[in-house]
């Protein structure tokens, strides 16, 4: 149970970082933290205490896997979500670099030409 709350705490910390920090790199880190907290949560959803790896070895039958293994589906989901997260991160960092080229600062409070 405590692990679920830890992943929620991580999510909230990421959101806090996103809202409170002015440095855009720190905002990017905040987004990444929230993403990872969800990934952890997904792994926890499929986790089973004392479960075995969901691999069909020689001499095992299907019912043994079904009874004893952790859920393999969330792991596949997490892989996909990590790859998507990488794509978003690359885009975010490249936009940050372009912003730095134009404004010469990473401070969000100085990057405000759009208002209203």
């Amino acid at each position: 149970m405590i692990l679920y709350f830890l992943s929620l705490a991580l999510f909230v910390m990421g959101l806090y970082c996103l809202v409170a920090k002015k440095n855009i790199i720190k905002k990017v880190i905040g987004i990444v933290i929230t993403e990872y907290s969800i990934n952890m949560f997904l792994i926890l959803v499929g986790y089973r205490d004392g479960g075995i790896a969901p691999v069909l070895m020689k001499g095992m039958d299907n019912s043994e896997i079904a009874a004893g293994s952790v859920d393999p589906l969330p792991q596949a989901l997490v892989l996909t979500s990590i790859v998507i997260g990488l794509g978003v991160l690359a885009l975010m960092v490249s936009i940050c670099l372009r912003l730095y080229e134009k404004y010469k600062t990473f401070d969000m409070s100085e990057i405000k030409r759009l208002r209203g």
């Binding site: 855009i24 987004i31 936009i95 912003l99 405000k112 759009l114």
Partner: peptide
């Protein structure tokens, strides 16, 4: 454009 894109991205 970059600023709008960054806001939208976050």
């Amino acid at each position: 454009e970059l600023e709008a894109s960054f806001k939208y991205l976050i």
